[in-house]
Design a binder for these strands. Structure first.
Length: 280
DNA sequence: AGAACCACCTGGCAGC
DNA sequence: TGCTGCCAGGTGGTTC
């Protein structure tokens, strides 16, 4: 399930709990997820090394050691959970990373759990992990980009793709998944089926503001919970109660009481209010 | 070149 | 109760 707020929440949790810890144990229960797991390289990067930095780039969690970086993507159903035991506690536990952390008596074990196995483990030997093929062609970070509205305007010129599909394109802006795409467009009052090319500069600015606001709100709430997402302690997020359109087809718009509509776009469900988000 | 489509996988749920 | 079919948060590669 994770979109940017969920990954950000997990990353912050990891920073608070295991940053500075040393990996002493690495167990793989399978050799592939979405693709092959680079087991030997991950061992070389992590084993007996301290974790000196943990950060998020797009929806990847980057765990940096002096030898390189591990990239963790949670896919649709992935979770990272901390337990005091190395024994898998949940079905579909694929990797367990054992760590000794300063100021803590017993070791901590980070469990990577992912029922659908759309997640991904990759790595980069050496310090230049930003150049990893999975990261180097990514678009801007929505939370820190100073001119997201300009970026959206520039990227939408000459494109006939629907604006909803465009803001979910990680080459344009990262971290906006299916839920927050619908929510951002509702907040900006823009119809999700509009051609990117038809957006005026002020609409792009409105959309940029909406994306930032909604992602920040979701992070404050600890991420959205539909079914699978849990933070490191296994707790759900609390944002789902404040969703305005996502998953509410047929229910009444909270602003104008018109029925929320479900639209299929590029094989994904889009939810919008036909009155608040007019087609132009 | 850009847009649409498909594949990867399991689990939950609606409908029969 | 139990089976079948459909749907789901992502995204890289293929096809059109």
């Amino acid at each position: 399930m994770p979109e940017l707020p969920e990954v950000e929440t997990v990353t912050r949790g990891l920073n608070a709990s295991i940053l500075g810890g040393t990996v002493f144990d690495l167990n793989f229960f399978r050799d592939s997820l979405r693709d092959q797991i680079p087991i030997a390289d991950l061992r070389a990067i992590l084993l007996d090394q301290p974790i000196i930095q943990i950060l998020r780039r797009a929806k990847y969690i980057v765990m940096v050691s002096p030898k390189g970086a591990a990239l963790i993507h949670l896919g649709m159903t992935g979770n990272l959970l901390l337990f005091p035991s190395s024994t898998p506690q949940l079905p579909h536990t694929h990797v367990v990373i054992g760590m000794k952390c300063k100021g803590r008596k017993g070791p901590l074990y980070l469990h990577f759990v992912d029922p659908r196995r759309f997640g991904r483990l990759a790595c980069h030997l050496g310090t230049e992990w930003q150049g990893h093929p999975l990261l180097r062609s990514l678009g801007v970070e929505p939370l820190t980009c100073k001119n997201l509205g300009d970026v959206l305007f520039r990227c939408s010129r000459g494109r006939s793709v629907a604006v909803k599909t465009m803001i979910m394109d990680a080459k344009v802006v990262v971290g906006v998944g299916n839920i927050y795409a619908s929510e951002s467009l509702f907040s900006a009052g823009i119809h999700p089926g509009r051609d990117g090319n038809s957006l005026a500069p002020d609409e792009c600015q409105r959309l940029a503001t909406a994306i930032k606001t909604i992602l920040r709100k979701a992070i404050r709430a600890g991420g959205t919970t539909l079914q699978d997402y849990r933070n490191l302690e296994g707790k759900s997020g609390y944002f789902s109660i404040s969703l305005n359109v996502y998953g509410r087809a047929g229910e009444l718009c909270r602003q104008c009481a018109t029925a929320v509509v479900l639209l299929r776009q590029s094989g994904r469900s889009t939810f919008y209010c036909p009155l608040c988000q007019k087609e132009k």
